[in-house]
Amino acid sequence: MYKNDIYEILENKMITKDVYRMILKGDTGYIKFPGQFINIKIDGCFLRRPISISDYDENTLTIIYKIFGKGTEKMSKMKIGEKLNILTGLGNGFDNNLSGKTPLLIAGGVGVPPMYRLCKELLKDGKKPIVVLGFNTKEEIFYENEFKDLGVEVHVSTVDGSYGTKGFVTNIIKELKDYTYYYACGPMPMLKAVYDEAQSDGQLSFEERMGCGFGACMGCSIKTKNGTKRVCKEGPVFRKEEIIW
């Protein structure tokens, strides 16, 4: 079930270049799994903007977004106390029951946010997640310390080598042996590379341009081994074994 409600901005601050964290106050009762998303109405834009949920508690939810176009640009200029019309409870999130003891959480760029809540859920279940984050360059890195504060092992790669391992998340995964499962979220080339490199089963979260965000318009449908699926409804998280590249 979904919820359409008005949420009040409690925080909206830049955490690194062009990347903002927004904390919203309102009903979070319809959010069930890490990896789900919200769809935000922004004045001056026709379509809503889908953004993944990074974390939530009883009455606040946190999103992390990057300025990408007109909608996110407008969001970045919003002030504390302003209100947003939001649909929550959207999408099919990560299944943390399949993780095994030591799952990898692999994320690139704005794929990082949903991994934060997933990491907390896995820790609550007594698992030992290992976090692998990929960015283009040092100044784009965010949430490395937030993950470390959760007490987990964190690896970082940068494409230009300005921080951590030079190259891609797959350069790190190659060196890691004893993981039981993986969860991945990031740009399509990263997801494909992870799919090819990782030795275990896993789940991957996809991003796509959406019309509605709740399964009505078929704007984001992809082909899977189990037939056509909507990224917004059956996804955004898909099992490794059902993906067709």
Partner: peptide, 30 residues
């Protein structure tokens, strides 16, 4: 939803574009 004889996946992605006071869709009768 528009129905054809055979199952259709529809057009390639992206199928949606934002416009002023509207959108463009190119679902392709999925």
């Amino acid at each position: 939803k528009g129905t054809t004889k055979d199952e259709r996946y529809g057009n390639n992605l992206p199928r949606i574009a934002e416009c002023e006071r509207g959108l463009i869709n190119s679902i392709g009768l999925q």
